[in-house]
């Protein structure tokens, strides 16, 4: 797992321009919402006692990480197939190790975006966010749950990629849905009807709701945090099991139909 993570970090760093461009775009997004926040959107009516920029910063920071963990496992397997390294990888393949290793590498690199955005926001946008000792473990726990739940979704799509030997293009669509309906740039209380159903089907909605509660509320509502953590754990367990079943079936199918040239 460590070796996979190290290799993936090295590979990503060899594409410095791509990495820097993603970083640049993340900063552009933060800046854009900073200026939008100057229109003074009122979040009090949604029961959120924070400024719009504080609210949106947490969401955007998570969006950078979630995008990476959603795309990484599936994208890495697709790249292995395209570049012809997939068949040799299968000799030593352990799906769990591969998934965790690639996700860790992606998250490690994506987290720089957050720290740089945070630094810029502190320095130029007058943004300040203070967290207490009790909040830190809660934030870490929720962060881990959010990361794992999106990793398992990526694992399911990786199974389809192995089966069909091509990328479906559904992951970017899911990312778009997550960006829009998880409450990143507006509270989900604004939604009604079918969009609420979409929002409640996305794991980030629960993670973000709990994180907003931990970071922005004056009094932590333990009930919300417990409930949302359990929902996230449910996502991880159910999607994780499903992904392992799908991946093993996909690999069997590939071997049976001679789609992996070593077999």
């Amino acid at each position: 797992m460590y070796a996979i993570a190290a290799v993936k970090v090295k590979m990503s760093l060899s594409y410095k321009s791509s990495y820097l461009i993603v970083l640049f775009l993340n900063l552009v997004t933060i800046t854009m919402y900073f200026f939008f926040s100057k229109l003074n959107p009122d979040l009090e009516i949604f029961g959120i006692s924070a400024s719009y920029f504080e609210f949106v910063f947490i969401g955007l920071a998570l969006q950078f990480i979630v995008g990476t963990s959603l795309a990484t496992v599936n994208g890495s397997i697709y790249n292995e197939i395209v570049s012809g390294t997939w068949s040799s990888l299968l000799l030593h393949f352990n799906f769990a190790e591969y998934a965790i290793g690639t996700t860790l590498a992606g998250t490690f690199l994506a987290s720089f975006s957050i720290f740089i955005s945070l630094g810029i926001s502190y320095a130029f946008f007058g943004f300040s966010l203070s967290v207490s000792g009790i909040q830190i473990p809660l934030i870490c726990l929720l962060f881990l749950l959010i990361l794992l739940s999106h990793m398992t979704i990526s694992m399911i799509f990786a199974a389809f990629t192995i089966y069909y030997q091509k990328n479906s293009g559904i992951v970017p669509l899911l990312y778009q849905l997550t960006k829009t309906f998880s409450g990143i740039v507006f509270p989900i209380a604004l939604l009604s009807g079918f969009p609420t159903v979409v929002a409640r089907s996305l794991p980030l909605t629960y993670g973000l709701e709990a994180l907003h509660n931990v970071i922005l509320s004056e009094n932590i509502q333990w009930e919300i945090i417990q409930r949302n953590s359990l929902v996230l754990a449910g996502f991880i367990i159910s999607l994780g099991i499903l992904s392992f079943i799908f991946v093993s079936k996909s690999i069997k199918h590939s071997k049976k139909h001679n789609k992996v040239d070593w077999y």
């Binding site: 939008f36 229109l39 003074n40 959107p41 009122d42 979040l43 719009y52 293009g169 970017p172 669509l173 778009q176 849905l177 960006k179 829009t180 309906f181 740039v185 507006f186 604004l190 939604l191 969009p195």
Partner: peptide, 21 residues
Amino acid sequence: VGFVNTLIAASLFYYISLLVP
């Protein structure tokens, strides 16, 4: 996918604009 993506992006702008005082 282009249709769905446009619809989702439009939803984002629509809901953001509802936040303006």
